[in-house]
Design a protein around this nucleic acid. Sequence first.
DNA 1: CGGCGTTTTGAGAGAGCTCAACATCGGTGG
DNA 2: CCACCGATGTTGAGCTCTCTCAAAACGCCG
Lengths: 200, 200
Amino acid sequence: MSAPDWLSASIRAAAVERTLAAGQTLFCTGARTAGLYEIVKGKVRLVRVDRSGREAVLQVAAPGDTLAEASLFSSAYHCDAIASTAAVVRFYPKAILIGELERNPKFAQAFAAMLARQVMTLRTRLEQRNIHSARDRVRYYLAINADPSGRTVALSGTLKDVAAELGLTHEALYRTLAEMAADGEIERRKGTIRLMKSVT
Amino acid sequence: MSAPDWLSASIRAAAVERTLAAGQTLFCTGARTAGLYEIVKGKVRLVRVDRSGREAVLQVAAPGDTLAEASLFSSAYHCDAIASTAAVVRFYPKAILIGELERNPKFAQAFAAMLARQVMTLRTRLEQRNIHSARDRVRYYLAINADPSGRTVALSGTLKDVAAELGLTHEALYRTLAEMAADGEIERRKGTIRLMKSVT
DNA sequence: CGGCGTTTTGAGAGAGCTCAACATCGGTGG
DNA sequence: CCACCGATGTTGAGCTCTCTCAAAACGCCG
C-alpha cells in the first residue's frame, strides 16, 4: 500500500526476485507462509474464491505495494495471489523479517504503520461495499482514486478489472459509466476518466 | 480483536477509564486522534455514515477488543465510534503508546501482530460482502461465529445489529432465518442459533 | 486475416429493498 | 397490577435494481 521505504538495506539484500506470467499464481490459500512479497513490476491481485466460484478481489497490488504482510504472523496464506499482468516480485523471507522486527524498533514501527494504513484502506473498501447503488459506488471509487487535482482518474487495468474490484458485474459498470457520461457527469477517454462535477 | 495481552503493565497504569451510555459517541470522524481504547464492558461499534444516511458497520468491539488502533499513525479519526450498549472503555494516550513502540520491540511486534489479525478479519468481512445471496451470507456468518463445537452461534446483541453487520436489511435477515428454520437448517433459541447441518 | 478478450447493448428474471402493518417484549409510571 | 410506550421482531406486497444470459461490435496481437 506504500513504497517500502520501511525496508532496510540489510533486508533488501536478502530478497529474491521472481518473475510471473499474467495469470500465474504466486501462492494459494492454505499454503504455508514463506514470507512477504513486494511488487516490482506489474499487478498482482489478492483474491478469495467462494464455493459458488465467485472471485472476491481483496486487494490489487501495484509496484511498490507489498503483499501478504499479515501472513508474517500466520502459518498459512488466507487468500490466493494471482498475477493480473506479467509481473516481477521481490520475496522477503519470513524469518529475516521477524528477526528484524525484534531487533529494530524503527522497522517495527514502520511495519506497524504500514499495517495500520492497510486497515484503513480495507475499511474504506468495506464502506464502499455497503453502497448499494451502482452509480454511487462508482462515484465513490472515482472520488477515492482521483488524482490530486480531483479531476481525472487513471484506470488501473481494464474496466473488467475495475468492475471486479468494485464488486459489480462488468455489464453493470459499463452501463453505469455510459449513463454518467450521457448525463455529463464524467467524460471518458482512453485509460482515464475526467470528472466534470467536483467531488463533494 | 484480541485480549490486550500485548499491553504492558506500565502502559496499563497510564490508562483512564470512561463510562458510556448506550448510543453515546466516543469519537467522531474528523476529530483529532488522542489514542486508542480498550473495551472493558459492553459493546462499541465503529461506523461510517455515507451521504445517504446509511450506516456501515466496520467493526463491533466487545470486551477485550481494542478500538482505533490504526489511528495511532493518523492525525484524525476516520470513523465514528458509538456505544451500542452501556459500556466502559479504557483509554490509552497516543504519545505513551508510540513511545513504548519505539522502546519495546516485544510490544511493537505484538502490536503489529494485532494489526495483522485485524487485516485478516477485515478481509474476511470483505469477502462476506461479496456474497450476494442473503442465505449464503447468513450461512457464512454463522460458520464464522460458531463456537468451537461448530454447532451453536451466540447472537451478539439484537438481530437488527446482526443485520447491520451483515449488510442486510433487518427484514431480509428475519425472512432468511425464518426460511432456514423452516427448512430445518437451523434451530432458533433465545439469543442463540443451533446449526443442524454441519458446516462444510 | 483470424482469433481472443474487452467493450457494448438488449431483454428477462430474481432477489433484496422499501413501505407498511402488526405482534411481541421489556421497561415505566400511574 | 395494568396501561402505555418504544424498540425489536415478523410478515406482506410491490418495485426497483442489479444479475444473468445472449449477441454483436471493437481492438489488439500473432
